[in-house]
């Protein structure tokens, strides 16, 4: 209990001012490193301010003083109890080469789930196109996929390479932007307990399965592989990684086989979600460039090269995801 409020304020004011100064120092300079003595002083001042707040709170009329101390304690609190690595540096290469593959491996179960979902969708799409001709009009997303694949292949191959050169930059940018936007949406739909993500992925699978079977049935498997593999070997996995991140959000909400609270689960997974979507964005930028500058060129003499390129790219991607950043992982485990 404070007997003499005036004396109390006079006595404590210099300590509050000193704490205010130390907070300002840290706020202005995020890279500020305090030594042991300064940290101890900061903690002492923080404890003194919290104690002052506890003593002043019962004084009804001291609304502004309570608010001032409330504000002081709330600003000092995160520096005492931490939570943020102040020196989070902009390291895009490290995030992609280490953060992204590590997150992928940590959340591998979600990747299995999303892969199974797209596979089931593909099977349904293929079965639907095989046994129900009318389903093609429902499944195919673009008009140019509605016709006979053999006609399209003949047309594409007859077009001179010079004529195939078009507005590649705009096309690549449009592909990147649209694919990343769709991936973000797929991720965000995880907030529907993962159901929205699963549905979107399943639907993508249906389209993919339908298109693939349509071309295989028409005897255009080589064209299909040469058309899809160069960019699809990156684009399709990237869409799956976005779905993987969406399922992580769903799992955080569901809490299946977890003793943590929703808040703790989200806190534990936020970094993996960020790393996955970052990796997705980089991969989709690459896929956009490949789709615009390579996939759209058709000709029988190009097919073996395009298929080889796509296959190697797919192998490299999964080798990267399985092995990259393992040293860092081990270091973190030791730490």
């Amino acid at each position: 209990m404070i007997v003499d409020l005036e004396k109390f304020i006079k006595q404590e004011q210099p300590y509050w001012d000193e704490l205010e100064g130390l907070i300002a120092l840290r706020t202005k300079d995020a890279a500020h490193e305090s030594d042991l003595a300064e940290s101890r002083r900061f903690y002492y001042l923080y404890r003194r301010a919290t104690s002052g707040l506890a003593r002043i709170q019962p004084f009804a009329a001291e609304i502004s003083l309570t608010a001032k101390l409330d504000s002081l304690v709330s600003r000092a609190y995160p520096y005492v109890y931490g939570g943020r690595k102040e020196k989070t540096r902009f390291r895009p290469l490290h995030w992609f080469c280490v953060g992204f593959p590590c997150a992928f491996r940590r959340q591998f179960t979600a990747f299995i789930f999303i892969s199974v979902t797209i596979t089931l969708g593909s099977i349904l799409g293929a079965v639907a196109v095989q046994y129900d001709d009318e389903s093609k009009s429902t499944i195919m997303p673009f008009a140019h996929l509605m016709g006979n694949p053999a006609d399209r292949v003949a047309l594409e191959e007859a077009t001179d390479l010079e004529d195939q050169m078009g507005r590649h930059n705009t096309f690549a940018a449009t592909l990147m932007v649209n694919n990343i936007r769709v991936s973000i949406f797929n991720l965000a739909l995880g907030i529907t307990y993962g159901l929205g993500t699963l549905l979107i992925t399943f639907y993508n699978g249906v389209i993919l399965g339908g298109v693939m079977l349509d071309y295989i049935r028409a005897g255009e498997s080589v064209f299909l592989a040469a058309w899809l593999l160069p960019h699809g070997s990156v684009e399709i996995p990237a869409i799956l990684f976005a779905g993987q991140a969406g399922l992580i959000i769903g799992q955080c909400l569901l809490g299946w086989r977890s003793a943590l609270s929703v808040r703790e689960r989200f806190r534990a997974c936020a970094q993996d979600i960020t790393m996955l979507i970052y990796g997705v964005a980089i991969l989709l930028v690459w896929a956009g460039i490949i789709e615009s500058f390579l996939s759209q060129y058709h000709g029988p003499n190009l097919y073996p090269w395009k298929i080889a390129f796509g296959t190697i790219q797919l192998a490299v991607l999964f080798a990267f995801l399985l092995f990259a950043g393992r040293n860092q992982e081990q270091e973190d485990a030791h730490a």
Binding site: Y79, Y81, G82, R84, I184, A270, Q271, I273, T274
Partner: peptide
């Protein structure tokens, strides 16, 4: 929400979910 400092990851997640 617990009065601690913001992590960059938190800002990424809150802004990505803006689309919903």
């Amino acid at each position: 929400i617990e009065g601690l400092h913001l992590h960059f990851n938190q800002l990424v997640v809150r802004n990505l979910l803006r689309v919903i």
